[in-house]
Every structure is written in structure tokens, then in C-alpha cells.
Computed example of a mutant assay.
Amino acid sequence: MNRAMKATALSTLSLLSLAALTACGGDSGSDGDPTAGKPEAATSGAAQPSPAERLAKTMVTEPEVGGLRVETTDEKFLFAKSPDEVTTDKPVCAPLALAMNQLPLGDPRADLTRSVSGQVESERKTGIGYTYITLTSYEAGGAESAMAGVKKAVEACGDGFTAKSKENESPYDSVTAEKVTPAGDEALGFKATLTFRDVQHVVHTQVVRSGDTLAVYFSADGMAIVNGRPSDAKPSPTVVKAQNAKLA
């Protein structure tokens, strides 16, 4: 998909309140940083890295995901710039709206989002679109609380909900829990359905807690939505496995 096509897709999806589904790219993320990886234990007297610095070192890089593109998202195409801008017709469903729109859950110390595009050979026919990764760090207990909120929302929002921001609106027809590969201290998955121009689409989300850090993986096929083709895109197993390994 060339840049012009992606821009067209984003403009259309913005009207759907799904603008972030096909990021048109931007400045590269942490890829190419030779120091990227797990934060090393600080030596006595050395300055401790900030939560944001830890997340930057923990985010996957392009070599770690088989050469897929790891990029920042363009803010002008975001559903909302902060959780405070998002409301839902069912308050209990708010964590799902945040998770599916690359926004941090709960009360974070720092958060970081990247989009991963492209497919490795083994995944070319498995319905995988863009995979979004949102890493969020918390004070002690904060990640567990945020995870509990997602679990409660999945259980309570089976018949769907509507999320709104200042300029956008996203109606979800249904939410269903899904089994995911065990990872971290706890992991959960869910899928949501939405309808555009009488065509149904399925988007998938996984949430993994590793200590006081959450990783949220979200995937959707934005071009299929724009072109009126049914879609069912799942987070890339390659991306999820690589990111979970860096959180372990």
C-alpha cells in the first residue's frame, strides 16, 4: 500500500472513528537503536532510567520482528489524544475503548505506542493487518488494577457499546472474550465486531501484564473497511511473541 492509499484510508476511517487503524507511518520508533533491549540493572549511584526511558528500551525493534516496519502513529489521525477525551455510553466499557484506540489504561506513569506493518511469510494468509502495541508502566499495583478493569469490561460489554471523543464516534456491535497464548503474569484477549456500510468487520485485542507493565496489542484491516470487504485481522503472532519476550 503506498502512502497516498494509506492517507485516503485514514481520512475515510476518521469519519468512522477508526482513524488509527491504518497508520500512514511517520518517524521510526526505537528501531535502529543499538542500545534497545531490556533495561540493564542500574549500578550503585547511577541515575535510574525514567519510566518512559524504560518503555523505549522495552519496545520491540524492526530486527526483533522479522524486519517489519515499526513506526510512530500520526497524531492527527488518532481517535483521541488522551483518555480524558473518551466517553462511552456504558462507563464499564471504557477500558475497551481505550485499548482499541491506543490509549493508556488506568493511572499510568508512562506509555508508548508503535504500529507494526507488513507480514512475515508464515502469516501472509492469516488475516493480519496492522498490529498496534501500547506499552504502559504503573506504580505498584496499578497494572493489576487496570487489567481487572479490562476483564470486567469484557464480561459486561458483550452486547456492544459506543465510544465517543471530541470529533469521533465508534460503535461496536459486540465484544467476545478469546483465548490467547499464556504470557507474562496474566493475559487476556477479546474481539469486537463493527459494521460499516452493511459490512461486518472484526478487530482483535490482547492484553498482557508483566509485573507493573501492560502490553496491549490491537489489530484491524483498515483498507478492507475502506474498500467494503469483510475483515477479521488478528495481532501478528511474531510481533506479540517478540514483545512479550522483552517484557519477561
Rank of each mutant, 00 (worst) to 15 (best):
M5N: 08
L112K: 00
V150K: 00
P104Q: 04
A143Y: 03
R69K: 14
A46Y: 12
A4H: 10
D107H: 14
R209T: 05
S28F: 08
L247F: 03
E62D: 14
A42E: 14
S137I: 06
T131W: 06
A148Y: 07
A245K: 13
M147E: 05
Y172C: 03
T8R: 03
M59N: 02
D84N: 10
S145M: 10
G222M: 00
P235F: 03
L15W: 10
P39T: 12
K166H: 09
G32E: 11
L98M: 13
D212G: 12
T162N: 03
V216K: 05
N2C: 13
Y132N: 09
H201M: 01
A4F: 10
E186P: 06
G211N: 14
R109M: 13
G29E: 09
H201I: 00
L103Y: 07
A143C: 10
G29S: 15
N2D: 15
V208R: 01
A220I: 01
G106T: 06
S14T: 11
V207T: 06
S17F: 05
A19D: 07
K164L: 13
G129E: 00
D74S: 15
F190V: 08
A242D: 08
G66E: 09
A42C: 14
P104F: 02
K38L: 08
T131H: 09
L247M: 05
G26Q: 05
A97D: 04
E40Q: 12
G67D: 07
Q243F: 04
V60F: 03
I133E: 06
T213S: 10
A19C: 14
T22I: 00
L13H: 02
V226I: 02
P91E: 13
T43A: 15
K76V: 12
T35Y: 14
A183Y: 07
R124V: 06
D33V: 14
M223I: 00
L21H: 02
V70W: 00
E64D: 08
R197L: 11
A163V: 08
T162Y: 04
L194I: 07
T22C: 01
T73I: 11
E53I: 13
V70P: 00
K57I: 11
S165C: 08
I128C: 01
L194E: 03
